[in-house]
């Protein structure tokens, strides 16, 4: 009892900090999105929920349904994010698996290498690629020497040979590249927790390695996979600078770009805030699904 009180006391400032800055900021977004604008098209937040005006939210919803102005952006974002998280899964899972179970004496080094990308900020890593992938950059030259660019354009993934010239594939690859470390780490932690004896038991009971992977390891790492996917999909949904740096063309703009345009650019800030509310609701839905499946899995394990 005494112990609990001490920890509660110690956690209080942090909880207060997080709560304050999340709740206040998010409430401000809601108040703007459900507020109004003045004669100069500047937003007037409605702080009192009784005053809330749902006009902009309706406008935002109308813009993201089929036929609406932002429908193409929504479709594009869903495709980009789906492909990017699938890519992160295919690339990240073997790495996390290797690092947690087969790295042997290299394990320490592999873990350091996995953390290495965090030493350089995301945006700096993207900036590096804008130079490498420029028409006369080293990256483009290597890709060209290996005929990768012509391979990509022959199967219709690349239009021409300019990687930075508004190509959807570049944005997707950049998203995978940028976010895959965030996917690997939670997965690594989850795979690492799987008790070696469980796998041994599977083998003892006659399961060949593929079967023990499919029927034991993979199901047991599902919470890790889900955590990793949620951890990368959520920021991807709001990401706008990857697109800005790697393409900058409206033909590849994502939902984050649209919100950024509304909020930074002109008189449609309330609409931008309403879009943010809408996006949060959609993401919250996925988050709840994640939490539910997590609880279900834990239930199964306990049973």
């Amino acid at each position: 009892m005494q112990k609990r009180r001490i920890w509660g006391f110690l956690a209080a400032p942090g909880m207060l900090w997080l709560g304050l800055f999340f709740v206040v900021a998010f409430y401000a977004v809601i108040s703007v999105g459900l507020g109004n604008i003045n004669t100069l098209y500047q937003p007037i937040p409605y702080w009192n929920p009784l005053d809330w005006n749902f006009g902009y939210l309706v406008q935002a919803i109308e813009s993201v349904i089929p036929g609406g102005q932002n429908w193409p952006v929504v479709v594009r974002s869903v495709i980009y994010i789906t492909v990017a998280i699938t890519g992160a899964l295919l690339i990240g899972y073997p790495v996390a698996y290797y690092a947690s179970r087969h790295a042997g004496r290299w394990r320490g080094l592999v873990v350091v290498l996995l953390i290495l990308p965090f030493w350089i900020s995301y945006i700096m890593r993207m900036f590096a690629w804008t130079n490498l992938l420029a028409p006369d950059g080293y990256g483009s030259k290597v890709l060209s020497a290996l005929s990768i660019d012509s391979l990509f354009s022959s199967i219709g993934l690349l239009d021409g040979t300019d990687w930075l010239g508004g190509q959807g594939i570049t944005v997707i690859i950049a998203l995978i590249y940028g976010y895959v470390p965030f996917f690997i780490l939670p997965l690594f932690a989850s795979l690492d927790r799987i008790d070696q004896r469980v796998i041994e038991a599977a083998r003892d009971l006659g399961a060949p390695p593929p079967s023990s992977f499919w029927r034991v390891i993979l199901p047991m790492s599902k919470p890790g996979i889900l955590a990793g996917l949620v951890l990368v999909a959520l920021p991807m949904a709001g990401d706008y600078y990857t697109q800005t740096l790697m393409s900058g063309s409206p033909s590849t703009s994502m939902i984050g770009n649209t919100i950024n345009d509304y909020i930074q650019g002109g008189p449609d800030k309330s609409l931008g805030a309403a879009m943010t509310i809408l996006l949060s609701v959609v993401l919250l839905f996925f988050m709840l699904y994640y939490l539910r499946s997590l609880r279900r899995d834990q239930g199964e394990v306990a049973a």
Binding site: T39, Y41, Q69, N70, P72, V73, R76, S249, P250, S251, T252, S253, N257, T258, D261, Y262, G265, G266, P267, D268
Partner: peptide, 18 residues
Amino acid sequence: TAEGEQTWEKAWSKFRAG
């Protein structure tokens, strides 16, 4: 005018949405 600005803005955000 205020309306004119809104007209331009709408067109611009439509363009930016690709």
